[in-house]
Design a protein around this nucleic acid. Structure first.
Lengths: 344, 344
DNA sequence: CTGAAAGCGCTTACAG
DNA sequence: CTGAAAGCGCTTACAG
């Protein structure tokens, strides 16, 4: 191939200086309109594109954001959390809308990402999409802060208030889930999911759940809270354990859809009907929720909005504007597993 | 923040020239081992990272690949094809493994991507993950070829043999799906999916399907082939139409899992049992397939391998090495909807 | 409104 | 084994 055209080639063709070409292509009003348009036409004709490396080097920013998805290394490769994938989609879109490029990477806890993206000028800022409570890499976050790297984390609020965190309002999610169950007349509502501080997102959902119980004069029975991580099999096991206890219950609020799907399998195995005998509400609105049988009532996190807010906040941070953490409200999606019996 | 360290700062600290620093950091054997290690230690201590923009500008390559996911604009934003997401995961991993960065972008058919990524030196090559037959943007591909852009497309083989395409072997997938159904003793096997040249992937699956029928002395009944696009509702509709025809059938091969899930819903509505009355095989092995009830027997595309081959091929292309298109074999995943009745 | 010139931070021939 | 120097292709003060 003929070597790529540069601004000098355009300048030569247009009979102007290279500086004028540069100005014209950035649509600077300093350049005579007619000249500007002529130059732009020539550039287009020659398939000329500004060299990003040169322009970034000169301006010292990259117009690129990095999205680092921190994987749980124990996870199967193919089992990326579907919620994350949905976030990936919305972040990609939001980034593009702002005229930025997006670098995507999966990272292991062990690797050295904390000092790579912004320092090498690959990206102007970093979005961290991680699991759990970030405890395990708290010191990496500290290091990022120390180096004045621009970053935002998705999820629960971080201990260190300087860390900008954006997340969905898990407390409110738990609230509306259990409120819905209570409105359906359910009195003994089990909670499946880790309620410890190891899983702050799940715990907030649990706290919202408990709040509604108390407000409605229902007692919070610790025996109705079963540990579960966000997998189908863990949900199955938790429901089995719950049934083993022999305590009566008429509803389950599962901390994630996968847990709910597993629980439904256990209930079905025991001949318990959903929602007649036990109503279920899940969390996340993953695609499986729609196609489950019965379809799953769930709490939907607004990933579209979340992506926009994350990107927006990060860009503000980069520009040195004022930003603060934010909680994004969630919505109840009513399906057959609780509260929408008539539909098939 | 103190402005970022440069190689000159390191040179100053190490008492050597900037050139030596540059060589040492690239681990050049030209530099005395001891000096090299000392410089590397200092760089690490100062959190120094080579500026990518500068080094890319100098070397004229970006060590970055671009992944462009071409969206069907009619699709709901949130409904990115789960198969694509899985590919995204494997491509991300494979790219990182090769020491490259990955730029990800969703693109509309209408936009101007064809002349953007490589021309601006953002990426050394492009991976196109698209829908259907690429007919609609054939001219864009031509343009890419014309400009000697390095790119590889995922999916069906392209008319223009210069286009490097990597895809799963849809013909073989159709083959093993229908072979499995035939082995289960099924005789009247319907096919749900577009069999026209508009959907070359679906058509190849259909052709494999037909081949097996013929080889087993079963006749190919055109009335048992129903149009469907890859959505649950389209699968539902197709199955309804099939039932309306009143033709007996004892199995369905659905061109995608979503179609299969929709078809199962229709069958259930009509009181038809899966797999007893009608066995079903889907295609893709999306997560829903595992959790469907009955769980769905399906054809799995090896996305892990596919991602690696795509990245590998593209890098070869960039390096000017010999490459050719490739078909990746698929696997049958047997579940309850056909051939695995005992398990629950 | 336009041009000549400096400089972003590297890599790599060239010279020693 | 090391250093001085050129140059990758831009952007932008500076001067006119």
């Amino acid at each position: 191939m003929a070597s790529k055209a540069t601004s000098i080639d355009i300048a030569y063709r247009a009979g102007v200086s290279q500086s004028t070409v540069s100005r014209a292509l950035r649509n600077s009003p300093l350049v005579n309109l007619e000249t500007r348009q002529r130059i732009q036409a020539i550039a287009k004709e020659m398939n000329y594109k500004v060299d990003k490396n040169a322009s970034n080097l000169r301006t010292q920013n990259s117009h690129t954001l990095a999205l680092l998805i921190c994987e749980d290394p124990t996870n199967d490769d193919s089992l990326i959390n579907p919620f994350f994938l949905s976030m990936l989609g919305s972040i990609t879109r939001a980034t593009a809308q702002q005229g930025y490029d997006l670098l995507v990477s999966f990272q292991q806890l062990s690797s050295d990402w904390h000092a790579d993206y912004e320092d090498s000028n690959k990206a102007d800022g970093i979005i961290l999409l991680g699991y759990g409570d970030y405890m395990d890499y708290a010191h990496k976050l500290e290091k990022l802060l120390e180096q004045n790297t621009h970053f935002v984390i998705w999820g629960a609020e971080h201990n260190n208030k300087s860390v900008l965190s954006i997340g969905c309002d898990n407390h409110q999610g738990g609230l509306i889930a259990t409120e819905h169950l209570v409105k359906q007349g359910r009195k003994s509502i089990a909670f499946l999911g880790d309620a410890s501080s190891r899983s702050p997102e799940f715990r907030d959902r649990y706290l919202g759940h408990c709040e509604v119980l108390k407000n409605n004069g229902l007692k919070v029975d610790k025996r109705l809270q079963l540990e579960a991580i966000s997998t189908e099999s863990s949900g199955f096991d938790a429901a089995e354990q719950l049934l083993d206890k022999g305590i009566a219950f008429d509803a389950i609020f599962a901390a994630s859809d996968l847990i709910a799907i597993g629980a439904m399998r256990a209930l079905k195995k025991h001949g318990i009907n959903v929602p007649e005998d036990v109503a279920i509400v899940g969390y996340d609105d993953i695609p499986v929720a729609t196609f489950a049988n019965p379809s799953l009532t769930t709490i939907k996190q607004n990933t579209q909005l979340a992506g926009e807010i994350i990107v927006d906040s990060l860009l503000k941070l980069i520009r040195g504007q004022e930003v603060s953490g934010m909680l994004i409200p969630t919505n109840l999606i009513v399906r057959q597993s609780c509260g929408n019996i008539e539909e098939n």
